[in-house]
Design a binder for these strands. Structure first.
Lengths: 244, 244
DNA sequence: CGGGCGCTTGATAGGCCTCAACGTAAGTGG
DNA sequence: CCACTTACGTTGAGGCCTATCAAGCGCCCG
């Protein structure tokens, strides 16, 4: 069971520590309690104190910031194997909200345990730093996309990023993936309106590049999309931390 | 001298460890060699292997990503006391370039030493994680700005962010600060063209809110700017890591 | 003195937003 | 079982914000 729940995580941390490594088992000991959350109900809210982190076992999540005028910016989506709320445990409070997009299952990581383990295992702490660094790399890439790419390029780029990340945890491939996002999610992630998202999706569909329909993304021409959006997967996998 | 060079850093890490604390002195031992770099010449380039990090002692720097079509997105500016290239040491390679905006002085942190110290001092490693987390929080805020704020709001927000960060290291106040950026830098940071930056600056100036002229930003109406741009400094200072 | 860099301004165009309406599917309550 | 509601998707018309193209100014520096 336990092993099962940490599978996607272990898979991603593979380069960092083999599953048999004592640090990873120590890591497994960190998150004992499993919990479920319902789609649409925030599990963390911007500005509130936060003492828990989670590892996502099943389902999709997004972390977002809310501006004062009600506008929303999704910073990133999380898929199985990703951490949730890691930074908020460290700082004690969160500057972002976390919303389950689907019903989700997570394992709970108590802040206190995490800090405890931190002192004992440099290897574990490096793995966590690596995870935070990766988040940073991803949001920098999103920044570049929203700042400098057109709507259609952003959309293509996002689909390719998701395809790549999902493929790494065995939930999709370069040919497509199940995708529970609404056009509103896409809009808030890409800095567009849902209406324009709809038009962009139509363009991509009619150009025979990608189809997003009925909760499934079908990638017809991966290479063309990668070319037009400038997608390179380097930022997603910084080859793991330097060990020793 | 040494103390001098780490002053802004120590000031920021104040909540984490008092300057007299053994971990901070250990930290000081990390960066012995001082170096200078000339304005405009990249010290790290996207995609290249990287074994050094730096602590900025004097001058301004920006980290940016270059898209394939030549467009540039500045992810963040660094001011004295900030780390440079921290993430690239951990992953061994950098997905961003680092350009000194002015002539700068830095202290060098050798990657090997950093990893060594990491194993010995959990307190130090938490401080580093805190620094990376802070970078993440900042780029998330920039993301929200570029995605959901208008040009004029973004500009105001950036000025207030810089004023706040500079004030913390004794290089400015809410009333203004010396600012070596060109309008091209602002454009690349805010996802605009330099031409439009010019017009936005004109608006802000004629509205009597901020003036950016001759390398100096003068903030005339701090509160109005904060109000219109939705600036809140929370994301800049996550209260330091949770200790113990 | 020529040339590059940074700044400024005008005219025009276009990408994306806003407003408005309608369709479909699923859920709810009577 | 049907009216009603809500969520999500789709399409059209018009307009604003920002980009693009173009030109000119001042300054520093070789």
């Amino acid at each position: 069971m336990q092993t099962n729940s940490i599978y996607p995580m272990a898979r991603k941390l593979g380069p960092v520590a083999a599953p048999s490594h004592p640090d990873l088992s120590e890591f497994a000991a960190l998150h004992k309690r499993k919990r479920s959350f319902a789609a649409g109900r925030d599990i963390v809210q911007q500005g509130q104190p936060q003492k828990m982190a989670y590892i996502l076992a099943e389902g999709w999540v997004c972390t977002y910031k809310l501006l004062r005028d009600g506008a929303r910016q999704i910073v990133d989506f999380q898929i199985p194997g990703d951490f949730l709320g890691l930074r908020s445990v460290l700082s004690g409070t969160s500057d972002q909200s976390i919303e389950p997009i689907t019903n989700i299952e997570v394992s709970e990581v108590v802040g206190f345990d995490l800090m405890n383990a931190w002192n004992k295992s440099p290897r574990l702490s490096k793995a966590i730093l690596w995870a935070v660094s990766r988040e940073q790399a991803i949001s920098a890439e999103h920044l570049a996309g929203i700042g400098r790419r057109t709507a259609i390029e952003r959309m293509a780029h996002l689909f390719l990023e998701l395809a790549t990340r999902l493929a790494w945890v065995g939930k999709g491939s370069k040919a497509g993936f199940a995708c529970p996002l609404t056009q509103y999610h896409l809009a808030d992630a890409l800095g567009l309106t849902a209406i324009h998202v709809n038009r962009v999706l139509k363009q991509l569909r009619e150009a025979g590049l990608v189809t997003f329909r009925d909760g499934y993304v079908t990638i017809h021409k991966y290479d063309t999309l990668a070319e037009m959006s400038g997608f390179e997967d380097g930022y997603l996998d910084p080859a793991g931390p330097v060990l020793q």
